[in-house]
């Protein structure tokens, strides 16, 4: 009846953006009055923090602060298509589109300022809310630069799209180029198994994921932590049951989800193997974060108590039964020898 600990690991890979089809996303950018910026794109914030990520990208490209960037609402009548929220695609597809659109808008502004100052455009930089020309004393706030543009009849805007070079799969042997960016990862899980009840507690997960380039590391951690806990729910407790077509888990009293008591500490390690194709080098994290968790936990349970769970979820009953099965088998072996 002891509580036994064990560890397991698993690796993973994943493709970024839509699978085996051409993906695309567009964005419009405007450097706005006061040195702020406006971005319109069909982005769908589903909680991952993509709006903040896009604001960071636009800010970095334009030399202003993220809080000075306004991202317009997603509206098919008001924003260019950026397709859906899924497939670990938004940072990659829309992030790159926003960067390209912002660069265009910035180029328009820089051209006006460079001509005002009589310097080459490639000497003009934008940073910290200012426009300045290297090797000169020329410098002005971004807001003044926008006013200057407008006084010259220019609204600094940009529009860009980002698409992938991908193909479908051959219907016979499956060959094809489903993605242009891949990510890889690996997780280690440590568990404690109560051999009295069969309960499994996942105490720690060490998660390493290549994300290309982390725009917001805390946001990446949030995706990893959340993904691991979703996977842990599937690993240990969640089970949508259906009998003769009718669910027996019709509400959240029967469909059991992990609470704050049931979750491990997660240590995230972010790897950056930059994407060579997109302008930013970013890839993604949303989905791959949860891929290695379940096998890592099952391998850890095996390490702890020798019970191999191949049918999810590893409920206390199933784990205890597997422990007893193993004990029976080893007694049987001992008797035979």
């Amino acid at each position: 009846m002891a509580r036994r600990r064990g560890r397991g690991m698993a690796a993973c890979w994943y493709g970024i953006a839509r699978t085996a089809t051409v993906d695309r996303a567009a964005a419009w950018a405007e450097i706005d009055d006061g040195g702020t910026a406006k971005i319109a794109t069909g982005v769908t914030e589903i909680g991952e923090g993509i709006l903040t990520v896009l604001a960071q990208i636009a800010a970095e490209e334009l030399g202003i602060r993220p809080q000075d960037v306004t991202i317009g609402d997603n509206d098919t009548a008001r924003a260019p298509e950026a397709a859906h929220a899924g497939a670990t695609r938004q940072t990659y597809m829309i992030g790159n589109a926003v960067a390209l659109a912002a660069r265009q808008a910035r180029a328009q502004l820089v051209d006006v300022v460079a001509s005002q100052w009589g310097v080459a455009a490639n000497l003009v930089e934008t940073a910290n809310g200012e426009v300045f020309a290297r090797k000169t004393n020329h410098r002005m706030p971004m807001g003044d630069a926008v006013s200057l543009c407008k006084s010259r009849g220019v609204v600094p805007v940009g529009a860009a799209s980002f698409g992938t070079d991908t193909t479908g799969l051959d219907p016979v042997d499956g060959s094809g180029r489903p993605w242009q960016a891949y990510v890889f990862g690996c997780q280690v899980a440590e568990v404690e198994v109560d051999t009295l009840t069969g309960e499994v507690q996942v105490l720690g997960v060490w998660a390493v994921h290549d994300v290309g380039r982390a725009v917001n590391p805390r946001g990446v951690e949030g995706q990893i932590e959340g993904g691991i806990v979703q996977a842990l729910g599937q690993a240990l407790m969640e089970d949508y049951r259906i009998e003769n077509g009718r669910t027996t888990t019709p509400g959240l009293a029967k469909y059991i989800l992990p609470t704050a008591l049931d979750v491990p500490h997660v240590t995230s390690v972010i790897l950056e193997d930059r994407d060579p194709i997109g302008p930013l080098g970013v890839k993604g994290i949303g989905e791959p974060a949860m891929v290695p968790t379940i096998p890592a936990v099952m391998n850890a349970i095996y390490d702890a108590v020798g019970a191999r769970i191949t049918a999810l979820p590893a409920t206390p009953e199933r784990v205890l039964e597997a422990i007893k099965e193993r004990e029976r088998a080893s007694r049987h072996r001992a008797a035979a020898e």
Binding site: L51, T52, A55, I57, P66, R213, V215, R218
Partner: peptide
């Protein structure tokens, strides 16, 4: 700002 832990807007 790319790579910074900017608080969520």
């Amino acid at each position: 700002f790319i790579g910074a832990n900017v608080r969520r807007l």
